[in-house]
Design a protein around this nucleic acid. Structure first.
Length: 678
RNA sequence: GGCGGGGUAGCUCAGUUGGUUAGAGCACAGGAUUCAUAACCCUGAGGUCAGGGGUUCAACUCCCCUCCCCGCUACCA
């Protein structure tokens, strides 16, 4: 099973260049990848760490249009921002490239041509919606219209968020382009498809049988996709932003981003070294993709099929995907600005990159979604990094200076306690390294802290500050061993906390880059001079984290206000049209949640005319018991409709806030049920 | 709707192929100590392992059902 690889190619998911990166990106992908790579390097292994910005695709063109700039300007801006953020957190890519560059265009086009010449693709001509005003085909996501199932007027071409049904763009009533607001027309277009279905049995053999060691979330997803049957997927798209399809008949078409992006790993490697083929085409190379869970299908199914179809490439040995990180109980969301942005964190906490690395690794979403809170951030800094790690180093160094002018004392005869501690010390690098190789970074970090704990306990048990008065020679041994622990800590901490390790190495006068030296009982030789004690970590006060929480709440609020756009007025209607609507005041008599739905309440309403049942999508904002007795406005002559098998006879009028929350439209004082609203 | 992951101590999480009294860190309580950034060290309390049923000598672990959270369902880590 375990193969002895000669070298490693490690990739981290290409961040999409239409926004900055936040703690979720770091915790989910870049930090674990960086720890893995730093560890491999410290082991002296041959490794290339590859990443870059993903700069193509529709969302970037939309963003450019919104901001009134070119797509290139959009990606230039975010490419730099993202690259700098990673650099500041010491994510040690060997190259951070980008998919809009020349190498990528050539590589991706060449890859396509290779598969095309092999006859891999299927060609299909289909009808798609086309925006005549903007002269472009529309992705399903960019078409809005009325949902044929529930009547929601803001359903997307792929899904209605009101009733949850998944749709085809052609199902929508009154479709409109989100780009121009115009009604799109159907137009014929030809595309090339990657026949994933033809690779099903191969995928089954490769993953379902061959990679049962993959993480449960990854393996489970892959198996479910393969079992569920795969479909051919278009690899081209009608768009002018991307890698042009290298065929005469395909002018105006580009490669679809998911085909283009993973090839970015290869082209980035080309930009890094002329030796790139060794890292992609040699069976002795171990390929590992670090990604988030949303990317599993691309890295485990689609890209491997591309590589397999090409034939010259190796396949990933593992794809350690993480789950998602939440922030203070809510999903991280770029559009809602609910995030801790990396560039902002560093502005607020200069020099504390390692603290965030520590916290995000200790609480990484390795097996399930996790929550980042500022309170936890503070606690981990103060109670763990500072109290256990920093404090141990400080004690050892301060005592050495106090008794021996900062010179490492020589060991005398060892006692049982010393031997036991040295034995434990010896075991740590192997334990931690093994965990890293198994992608269990959280546990590896916790073992790192246990090493610091070992040091603290050793000092507490041997009490050199007491013994110095009675048995000074004994103290020499104790401090020698304490410093050996500190030295090993430096080395094994480097993958996790590179800045701290560097400071520590400077303090102890050692190097950090030799993993093999960690755990040794005599790494520091007698009389070696160490530097003055400097604090590795500072206490983080309550006010500091409170300010961060406040900042988060403020930006959320500001963002909400900014987003509270008023939708444009609809077309004029005649009085007759209006008077067709029969709106009455009614009272809610009963309310209960519709089983197995998130949003639906089944209401019984006294409309004055009758008592009727209405199903309303308001359950997320109201507790059923609490709304009984309230008066509401009811559209009573809306044609009945079955929702979840219950006939809904009318509609409750609601006012919707910017955040999606709802309020009843109700009379300011109690009126008789059945009163007309006109 | 289909599928995947998860539900274990107040909080964040471990728990390998079913096998004694279910573990760790943080928080909490008590003690000890003063070299150290009010830090360290020791001890303790704290769990119907979401709920129900089944298989078994034995179930957190395997099977079935129910509930809850998250995600995917084909371009937001």
């Amino acid at each position: 099973m375990t193969k002895n690889y000669k070298r490693y190619t490690v990739t981290a998911a290409l961040p999409y260049a239409n926004g900055p990166v936040h703690i979720g990106h770091l915790a989910g992908v870049y930090l674990p990848a960086d720890i893995y790579v730093r560890y491999l390097r410290a082991q002296g292994r041959d490794v290339k760490f590859i990443c870059g910005s993903d700069e193509h695709g529709v969302p970037i063109t939309i963003r450019a249009q919104k901001e009134g700039i070119t797509p290139q300007q959009v990606v230039d801006k975010y490419h730099q921002l993202i690259r700098d953020s990673f650099a500041e957190f010491n994510i040690s890519f060997d190259i951070y490239s980008r998919t809009s560059n020349q190498t990528q265009h050539e590589t991706a086009a060449g890859f396509f041509t290779n598969l095309y010449n092999k006859g891999v693709f299927e060609e299909k001509t289909t009808q798609q919606y086309f925006d005549e005003k903007n002269q472009q085909f529309l992705a399903d996501r960019y078409i809005v219209g009325t949902c044929p199932r529930c009547g929601n007027e803001n359903a997307y071409g792929d899904q209605c968020e009101s009733c949850g049904s998944s749709l085809n763009a052609t199902d929508l009533i009154n479709p409109k382009s989100m780009l121009s607001g115009e009604k799109p027309v159907m137009k014929e277009t030809k595309h090339w498809y990657l026949p994933l279905d033809q690779y099903e049995s191969w995928l089954r053999e490769w993953i379902v049988e061959g990679h049962q060691e993959w993480k449960a979330n990854v393996y489970g997803q892959c198996k479910s996709w393969i079992d569920g049957g795969l479909q051919a997927r278009a690899v081209t798209r009608d768009l002018d932003w991307g890698v042009p399809v290298p065929l005469e008949e395909a002018t105006g078409k580009v490669l679809y981003v998911w085909f283009d992006a993973p090839i970015g790993y290869i082209s980035a490697t080309k930009d890094l070294t002329s030796d790139w083929q060794k890292y992609w085409q040699d069976e002795d190379t171990k390929l590992v993709h670090f990604i988030g869970k949303d990317n599993i299908v691309f890295h485990c199914i689609i890209f491997p099929v591309m590589l397999k179809a090409h034939g010259d490439y190796i396949l990933p040995d593992n794809v350690p995907a993480n789950e998602f990180l939440n922030l203070e109980g809510d999903k991280i969301s770029t559009s809602r600005n609910w995030a801790v942005w990396l560039h902002e964190y560093l502005a607020d906490f200069p020099g504390k990159g390692d603290v965030l690395r520590y916290v995000l690794c200790a609480n990484a979403p390795e097996t399930k979604d996790n929550d980042f809170t500022w309170k936890d951030f503070q606690a981990r800094n103060n109670n763990e990094l500072l109290a256990i790690f920093g404090n141990f180093i400080n004690r050892a160094v301060v005592l050495t200076h106090k008794y021996y002018d900062g010179k490492v004392p020589a060991k005398a005869e060892l006692q049982t306690a010393d031997v036991m501690v040295l034995d434990e010390l010896k075991a740590f690098p192997g334990i931690i390294g093994d965990l890293i190789e198994r992608y269990r970074f959280r546990e590896a970090l916790s073992e790192l802290m246990n090493l610091a704990r070992l040091g603290n306990k050793y000092l507490a048990d041997t009490e050199p500050w007491k013994i110095i008065k009675t048995d000074p020679d004994r103290v020499k041994t104790i401090l020698n061993i304490a410093l050996q622990i500190a030295a090993s800590l430096t080395i094994v901490a480097e993958p996790f906390l590179p800045e701290t390790a560097e400071k520590l190495a400077a303090m102890l006068g050692i190097k950090t880059d030799e993993w093999a030296a960690a755990g040794a009982p005599d790494y520091l030789i007698a009389d070696h001079q160490i530097g003055e004690a400097a604090l590795l970590f500072q206490r983080i006060e309550d006010e500091t984290v409170q300010a961060q929480v406040q900042k988060l709440l403020d930006t959320k609020k500001e963002n909400q206000l900014a987003n509270a756009t008023v939708s444009p007025a609809k077309e004029n209607i005649s009085f007759e049209d209006f008077s067709k609507m029969d709106i009455r005041v009614g009272t809610i008599l009963e309310a209960e949640k519709v089983a197995k739905t998130k949003k639906l309440l089944k209401l019984k309403i006294d409309t004055g005319l009758d008592q009727r049942t209405i199903v309303s999508g308001i359950a997320e904002y109201f507790i059923p018991e609490a709304i009984i007795g309230q008066q509401v406005s009811v559209l009573v002559n809306l044609a009945p409709r079955a929702i979840k098998g219950i006939e809904s006879q009318g509609m409750i009028l609601m006012a919707e806030n910017a955040d999606g929350s709802l309020a009843f439209v109700q009379p300011s004082e109690i009126v008789k049920n059945g009163s007309n609203i006109a």
